[in-house]
Lab assay of single mutants.
Amino acid sequence: KKKIKIYIENENGEKKTIEIEVEGDIDEIAKELAKKYNVKIVKIEP
């Protein structure tokens, strides 16, 4: 498992940072999160 930080922006332009532990393809997981929460991924840090 890797701990990563995902910087997101919602439709109101509010920026947030999510810190999660992931296993597998980080890009795939980030895309799923973006779709699920309707946010834009700004940056992903390993």
Rank of each mutant, 00 (worst) to 15 (best):
K1G: 08
I20R: 01
V39G: 15
E11N: 10
P46L: 15
I20S: 01
Y7S: 06
A34D: 02
E32T: 08
K15P: 08
I44S: 01
V39P: 00
E9L: 09
P46Q: 14
E9A: 05
I6S: 00
N10T: 15
Y37M: 12
K2S: 08
I41Y: 04
T17P: 01
I41E: 02
N10D: 14
D25P: 07
K35L: 14
E23K: 07
I41T: 02
A30P: 01
E32G: 07
L33Q: 00
K40C: 11
K16W: 15
I44D: 01
E9V: 13
P46N: 13
A34V: 09
G24C: 06
E14Y: 09
A30Y: 07
T17G: 03
E45M: 05
K2V: 14
K15V: 15
V42W: 07
V42R: 01
K16Y: 15
I26K: 01
K1A: 10
E32W: 14
K31V: 08
I18L: 12
I29Y: 14
E11G: 10
K1Y: 10
N12R: 13
E19A: 04
L33I: 15
P46S: 14
I4D: 00
I8A: 06
K36F: 08
I20D: 01
I41H: 01
K15R: 12
G24F: 02
L33Y: 15
K3Q: 08
N12I: 10
I44R: 01
K40F: 11
D27K: 10
E23L: 09
I4H: 08
K5D: 02
E28D: 11
I26F: 09
P46G: 11
G24D: 04
Y7L: 09
G13Y: 03
D27A: 09
K5G: 00
K16S: 15
Y37S: 03
E21M: 11
E9H: 05
Y7D: 03
K2P: 07
K1L: 11
K5M: 08
K15I: 15
E9D: 03
K5W: 13
I20P: 00
E9T: 04
I20Y: 05
N10C: 13
V39F: 15
L33C: 06
K43A: 11
E28Q: 14
E21P: 01
K16G: 14
E11Q: 14
K15Q: 15
E21I: 13
I26N: 03
I4N: 01
I26H: 04
K1Q: 09
K3C: 09
V39H: 05
N10S: 13
K1M: 12
I29E: 04
V42C: 07
K43L: 11
Y37R: 02
I44K: 02
K31F: 09
D27M: 13
E21G: 02
K36I: 10
V22P: 03
K31L: 11
E19D: 08
K43Y: 12
E11L: 10
K3T: 09
E32L: 13
K35Y: 08
V22Y: 13
K1N: 06
D27R: 09
K2G: 08
E19P: 00
D27E: 12
K2F: 15
A30S: 05
I8G: 02
E23W: 14
E9R: 05
I6V: 10
G13V: 00
E19G: 01
